[in-house]
Amino acid sequence: MPTGRANPAPDPGAARRAEFEALHARLGREVWAIAYARWTDPDLALDVTQEAFLRLWKQWEAGETIENPRAWLLRVARNLAEDHAKSAFRRNGTQPPELLNGVRSRQPAPAEALEREELFAKIRAELDGLAPADRDILTLRYALDYDAAKIAETLGVAVTAVHMRLSRARQRLADKLGPLDGYSPANGTPT
């Protein structure tokens, strides 16, 4: 006679929640990169990322079937970033205030860190002058270490186009930033 308790029925909500978390772990950075490339603002990109995932969750809760969550999330993130661009323009003019500030306020840092911040502020300013497609490619390449094939697959463009745009954007940034002999890379970054 069995005395043990029967196994509880699997909770569909918990399974869906686990699937959602796995999706976030797998795609969160990619969605962030797409949102970041629009505004070069990491905090705003994070807000957009979380909002995109929340909307996906609501779609699931409403019983909607999303065939390709990755494409859906990237599209929603891009649209949210664009919507922010429009609302920011209405509120602040041409640029949101956080982008009008030069060097971002951070904790007091030693001289080397200060030089790095100045260089990063310069990069940020130069990135704003690039085409959004170039920023997409640069962000995926350098923030997520994607190769050209994966970038092409993510953005839905040809690999040759990725190579061409990446090379051109790198060269333009190198020209604008000037010699970088005094730059000491962060720990673990090979040169």
């Binding site: 976030h24 969160g28 995932f53 940034l173 190198a174 970088l180 002999d181 890379p185 090979p190 040169t191």
Partner: peptide, 26 residues
């Protein structure tokens, strides 16, 4: 990796939130 690649890698990785936040609602 060239120096511009190192600079850009440092820059973009410094922008990426570390650690990346958990899924919303968690």
């Amino acid at each position: 990796m060239t120096r511009i690649d190192a600079v850009l890698t440092d820059f973009f990785r410094s922008e990426l939130p570390q650690p990346f936040p958990a899924a919303p609602g968690l």
